[in-house]
Design a protein around this nucleic acid. Structure first.
Lengths: 212, 212
DNA sequence: TATTATACGTGAAAAAATTCACAAAAAAAG
DNA sequence: CTTTTTTTGTGAATTTTTTCACGTATAATA
């Protein structure tokens, strides 16, 4: 019925998968070999059926009456997300948000390795932060093609976001994680994910107002 | 039909409202008095019908054949979000992410004023960052009740998030914006909004894989 | 061994969100 | 003044996501 045969999958489910991964890794470290949906659901504050349906999309099946094999489920989720083979990323904009993300060690665990940061502030260029070199914007294109980097984290101010995004698209980047509070226009071949803090603040504001 | 008469509203719509606000403020600054859904949709890369339906939830109506009054729409959205009367917030955890958020001046525009930061690192306590004083955790409870603060931004490491969240709930905080990569358990009276970076990374990863 | 509790898998129902389709109003154009 | 274009508002259809209900398999218990 729908035109797109290759469906993307359920986005809310995809967004919950990392939570399972986090719990499962803890279980694995504790030597637990099996995990049930009820157990995962209580430790994450979700409904059991949500866990089962989410796991279903990864293709991993458990054993009736027993549960899921922890190691197999971890592999399955990582596989589904493409997080088992680490991919390199650039970070553009070494301001405070950029630095915060450079300091976030969770990315490594998720198969994302920030290999270089870029900025056009001469005071920042040349140095390094958390082991990641800060390079001038002029080096972006040559490095992108040389290192085959195709993910970029965009943490520049809103008014330069569009220009940088265009540059990134031009460099062959295929995914932009946009932290700037601006809508960026890129060719269709580039996936953009907006990390919009004000959206979350809006949701929280309304939830507080309605006492839930 | 549904049990809850006071429905929260459509969450995706709520999360998009700040985008309209951003564009509308730009228009207002440029002296534009009227804005149509088609114009808003093209500048944000959304479908026109999405814009119309989103605006519908705020209760603001436009004029057929003309559009929406910019000033009225801004007011209406701010009103709906509760962003017209500024509310104070605490930030707990003055690490790199905490500092990045303290430096994010967008909050002010969204009616959120961070009045104090808390940390238990003695090296940080006593100083200030971006004009916000960094106080010891021990001061949290007394200040919360004295200043009637009811929103907290949680930027502590994952392993102390639950403990701090419990403290916050104990202080009468009614909304927690959780940046820690952990599920926190709080009483029902407290709204939690998880800002899960790994969820976004998961979504981006899958989208890149499926070439869209 | 029989019974009970646990737990997966899945088709179907329900709810939420998006998209369509079109009537009606206003402005612009001819 | 009439026609065309633009645009809101909304009920309905569609799609997506969540939730339910139940069959079946496994383990534990009596």
């Amino acid at each position: 019925m729908p035109k797109n045969a290759a469906k993307v999958g359920k986005i809310p489910s995809i967004r919950r998968l990392p939570q399972y991964l986090r719990v499962l890794r803890g279980l694995e470290g504790a030597g637990q070999e099996v995990a049930s949906s009820s157990m995962l659901s209580t430790s994450l504050g979700l409904e059991q059926i949500v866990v089962k349906k989410d796991i279903e999309i990864t293709g991993i099946t458990g054993k009736t009456g027993v549960g899921y094999m922890v190691a197999e489920l971890i592999d399955g989720i990582e596989d589904y997300l493409g997080w088992n083979n680490s991919s390199d990323a650039f970070l553009v904009g070494a301001g405070s948000m950029g630095k915060a993300l450079l300091g976030y060690d969770g990315f490594r665990r998720h198969g994302l390795q920030i290999v270089a940061a870029f900025d056009n502030d001469e005071g920042k260029v040349g140095g390094e932060y958390k082991g990641v070199p800060v390079l001038p914007m002029s080096k972006l294109k040559s490095l992108a093609s040389r290192l085959h980097v195709h993910i970029a984290i965009l943490t520049v101010p809103g008014d330069s976001a569009q220009e940088v995004a265009s540059q990134l698209a031009d460099c062959g980047i295929s995914g932009i994680w946009n932290f700037a509070p601006t809508t960026i226009q890129v060719p269709e071949s580039v996936s953009v994910l907006n990390e919009d803090l004000s959206a979350s603040l809006a949701e929280l504001s309304v939830r507080i107002q309605s006492n839930m």
